[in-house]
Design a protein around this nucleic acid. Structure first.
Length: 282
DNA sequence: GCGACAG
DNA sequence: ATCTTGTCGC
C-alpha cells in the first residue's frame, strides 16, 4: 500500500487532496475564482504600507532605554484534523512583550470552505482571524495586540502580498509574516548557494537578506535561536519595515517559531485533541 | 512542456 | 496543514 509523502495517509484516500495520481480527481479551481482573488489582492495591495507604524518605534525605544512599557503581540494559526479537509481549529493568542507571557487565547472550530492554492492562502484562512480579532476587540479590548504575527508570508509572495499583508491591511494594524519554508518567488531559490548561506548562520539572530531577481529585498532568512540551524523566513505584512520585522520576530523567539505563533500552534492542536470527536456537533 | 507551489 | 519513532545532544 502506498503512502503519501505530504499527508502520510493512504494515497487512494486523497486525504490532502494532493496525493492523488489521477489529475481528474484534483479539485481544479475555476479560473474565474482565481481571477477574482487576484483582483482583490491588487485592490488591497494599494493600501499596503511597508514603513514602521509609530508603535513599532515605541517598542524599540522602550527596549533601548529600559523603559518598562508593556505591549501585546498576537499570534494566529490554524490546525487541521487529519483526513478531514474541512474541520479545523483557528487560534488567536496574545502574548505580552517583551516578557512573552500568554495573556489571552481563543480557539474556535471552523470549516475550511476555500481550497489551498499557493499564493492565495489568505482567502482560505484570513476571515477566521479577523473574526477572532473582532471578538477580542469586543470582549477583552485591553489585550488588543499592537502587532500580529502570522504563520505564513508577508511580501515574500508572487505578488508581494501574502497572508500577513492581507490580514494587516484588512485590520489596518502592523502584521508580520513568519514562514517555516521558503516560498520560491522572484527567483529566490533553495539551491546550494542558499544552503551555503544557511550554513553560515552561526548563532541566533544571524540572518541574510532575501533579494529577488527584481533587485527588491522581500525579507530575511533568520536563525531565530541558538537551538536550531533551520532558519525561518520573515517578511513584513503591513505597517512595518523589513528590518523592524526581523528585529521584533527575533525578540519573540524562545524557540524556532516566534512565541505568539508557537503558542497558537500548540494551543490549537491541543484544543483539537481534547474537543474534536470524529462527528462534529453542528 | 516541466517544475515549483507559504499553509 | 497532517502522521510517525527513534535518536542525538544539551
Amino acid at each position: 500500500m502506498d503512502f503519501c509523502d505530504d499527508c502520510g495517509g493512504v494515497k487512494e484516500s486523497r486525504e490532502c487532496g494532493k496525493c492523488d495520481s489521477d489529475p481528474v480527481q484534483r479539485e481544479d479551481v475555476p479560473q474565474d475564482v482565481k481571477d477574482k482573488w487576484e483582483k482583490e489582492q491588487d485592490e488591497l495591495k494599494k493600501k499596503l504600507i511597508l514603513e514602521d507604524a509609530p508603535v513599532i518605534q515605541e517598542m524599540k525605544e522602550s527596549m533601548e532605554h529600559n523603559k518598562d512599557m508593556k505591549f501585546y503581540i498576537g499570534g494566529v494559526d490554524i490546525s487541521f484534523v487529519k483526513g478531514d479537509l474541512v474541520n479545523a481549529c483557528s487560534a488567536f493568542v496574545v502574548c505580552s512583550f517583551p516578557d512573552l507571557e500568554k495573556v489571552y487565547e481563543d480557539y474556535e472550530m471552523v470549516k475550511l470552505t476555500q481550497p489551498y492554492i499557493p499564493g492565495y492562502l489568505a482567502f482560505r484562512e484570513v476571515d477566521f482571524m479577523i473574526q477572532q480579532y473582532n471578538k477580542l476587540k469586543t470582549r477583552k479590548p485591553e489585550y488588543l495586540p499592537h502587532v500580529i504575527m502570522v504563520d505564513g508570508n508577508g511580501i515574500i509572495h508572487p505578488k508581494e502580498f501574502g497572508c500577513a499583508c492581507q490580514l494587516g491591511v484588512l485590520l489596518d494594524i502592523p502584521c508580520i509574516g513568519s514562514a517555516k519554508k521558503l516560498f520560491q518567488v522572484d527567483g529566490l531559490e533553495k539551491d546550494e548557494h542558499h544552503q551555503e548561506k544557511i550554513k553560515n548562520l552561526s548563532e541566533g539572530g544571524d540572518s541574510f537578506p532575501l533579494i529577488g531577481d527584481s533587485g527588491r529585498q522581500l525579507g530575511v532568512a533568520l536563525r531565530s535561536c541558538n537551538k536550531t540551524t533551520n532558519p525561518i523566513f520573515v517578511s513584513p505584512g503591513h505597517k512595518i519595515s523589513i528590518a523592524s520585522a526581523e528585529w521584533l520576530v527575533y525578540k519573540c523567539c524562545k524557540y524556532r517559531i516566534p512565541e505568539p505563533v508557537r503558542q497558537a500552534d500548540i494551543g490549537s492542536r491541543e484544543y483539537l485533541r481534547q474537543n474534536f470527536k470524529h462527528d462534529e456537533p453542528t
